[in-house]
C-alpha cells in the first residue's frame, strides 16, 4: 500500500497517466451530469464514434499527426454529428434513438473506409486505429496531459461562467425561452463542451468506453443529492477517483488494460450509489417501506394491504 502511494507520487509514468485519467474524469463527470439530466446520455456514444472520420479526414487533409490537429478534426466531426442527430429527430418522424444509431454507425463506417484507404496509401504513417478504439492510457505523455488539462480547464471555466444558463437549459428550457435567453445558442455551447470532453477522453479510454465515463459518474452522483452543484462536484470527484484507481489497477496488475479498468471502477461506484445512497438508494427505500409497514400494522392496519 505504501509502495503504491510512493509510486503514485514519485513514479513519473504512473503519475502522468494517473493525472491524465483523473483530469479526464473530472471534466467528463462534470459535463456528463448535464448530458444525463437532459436525457442525452447516449449522445456521447454517438459523438465519440462519429469522431473517427474527423480524425481520418484531418490526417488526410493536413498529413499531420499531431494531437491538436486530429482532436480538432474529431471535434468538428462530433459537432456535425450532433447537429445531424438533432435535425433528423426534429424534422422527420424518425425518432431520436434511431437517429443516434444511424449517425453513430454510419459515421463510424465512413471513418473505417477512410482509415483503410489511408493505410493503403504509399507514404502512410498510420494513424493508430487501435489506439482510437481502446485508448492507450499507458502511452500518455506529459504533453498530452497538458493539452487535456488545458482543454479541460477551458471547459470547466465556461461551465462556471454559464452555470445559470446551463441549469435553465437542463431543467426548464421553455421558461428560459420566455425569459428571452437564446436557448439554442446555450444548447450549442453546452454541446460543444460535451464534444470537447469526449475528444479529450478518446485518447485515454477509447471510443467504446467513453460513454461510460460521461454517464456513470453522473448517475452515481445523482443518487446522493438533489442539488445540481453538488451533483456536478460529486460526479467530477467520482470520475477522478475512477480514473486514478483504474490506472493504478492497470499498473499493479499485469496485463490489465487501463481503459476497461477505469470503466469497471466507475461502474462499481454506480452500483454502490444505487444500493446505499441515503433516501434514494434501493436499500434505504426498502428499509423505509419496511418501517412504514411496521408502523401501519402497529396502528392496527390489515396485514396484506
Amino acid at each position: 500500500m505504501i509502495e503504491l502511494f510512493n509510486n503514485l507520487f514519485f513514479d513519473h509514468t504512473l503519475r502522468t497517466v494517473a493525472l491524465g485519467a483523473g483530469a479526464l474524469g473530472i471534466v467528463s463527470g462534470a459535463l456528463g451530469s448535464f448530458a444525463v439530466l437532459r436525457r442525452q446520455s447516449l449522445l456521447g456514444d454517438a459523438i465519440s464514434h462519429a469522431a473517427l472520420p474527423g480524425i481520418a479526414l484531418a490526417f488526410l487533409l493536413t498529413g499531420n499527426k499531431s494531437a491538436l490537429v486530429l482532436l480538432s478534426g474529431a471535434a468538428i466531426a462530433g459537432a456535425i454529428a450532433t447537429w445531424l442527430v438533432t435535425n433528423i429527430a426534429g424534422l422527420t418522424r424518425v425518432k431520436y434513438d434511431s437517429a443516434l444509431g444511424i449517425i453513430l454507425s454510419v459515421f463510424f463506417g465512413f471513418g473505417l473506409v477512410l482509415l483503410t484507404y489511408i493505410q493503403k496509401q504509399p507514404n502512410a504513417n498510420q494513424a493508430g486505429l487501435e489506439k482510437y478504439l481502446f485508448g492507450q492510457a499507458a502511452a500518455i505523455v506529459e504533453k498530452d496531459v497538458l493539452i487535456m488539462a488545458g482543454l479541460g480547464l477551458v471547459a470547466l471555466f465556461l461551465l462556471f461562467l454559464f452555470w445559470k444558463e446551463f441549469k435553465l437549459l437542463s431543467f426548464d428550457r421553455d421558461f428560459g425561452t420566455t425569459m428571452g435567453y437564446p436557448m439554442a445558442l446555450i444548447d450549442f455551447v453546452l454541446t460543444t463542451l460535451l464534444v470537447l470532453a469526449i475528444v479529450i477522453g478518446l485518447q485515454t479510454v477509447g471510443v467504446v468506453l467513453m460513454s461510460a465515463m460521461l454517464i456513470a459518474p453522473a448517475v452515481a452522483a445523482r443518487q446522493w443529492t438533489d442539488n445540481l452543484a453538488i451533483m456536478v462536484l460529486l460526479a467530477a470527484f467520482f470520475g477522478a477517483l475512477a480514473g486514478v484507481s483504474g490506472t493504478v489497477a492497470s499498473s499493479t496488475i499485469s496485463r490489465m488494460p487501463a481503459g476497461p479498468a477505469i470503466v469497471v471502477a466507475v461502474s462499481f461506484l454506480v452500483v454502490l450509489s444505487i444500493l446505499f445512497a441515503p433516501r434514494r438508494g434501493v436499500i434505504w427505500q426498502r428499509g423505509r417501506d419496511y418501517l412504514l409497514r411496521q408502523r401501519f400494522r402497529a396502528l392496527g392496519g390489515k396485514k396484506d394491504v
Binding site: 436525457r39 446520455s41 447516449l42 456521447g44 460513454s211 461510460a212 460521461l214 454517464i215 448517475v219
Partner: peptide
Amino acid sequence: YEDAAIGI
C-alpha cells in the same frame, strides 16, 4: 433513466 442505463 433508460438511456443512461444502456450507457452504463
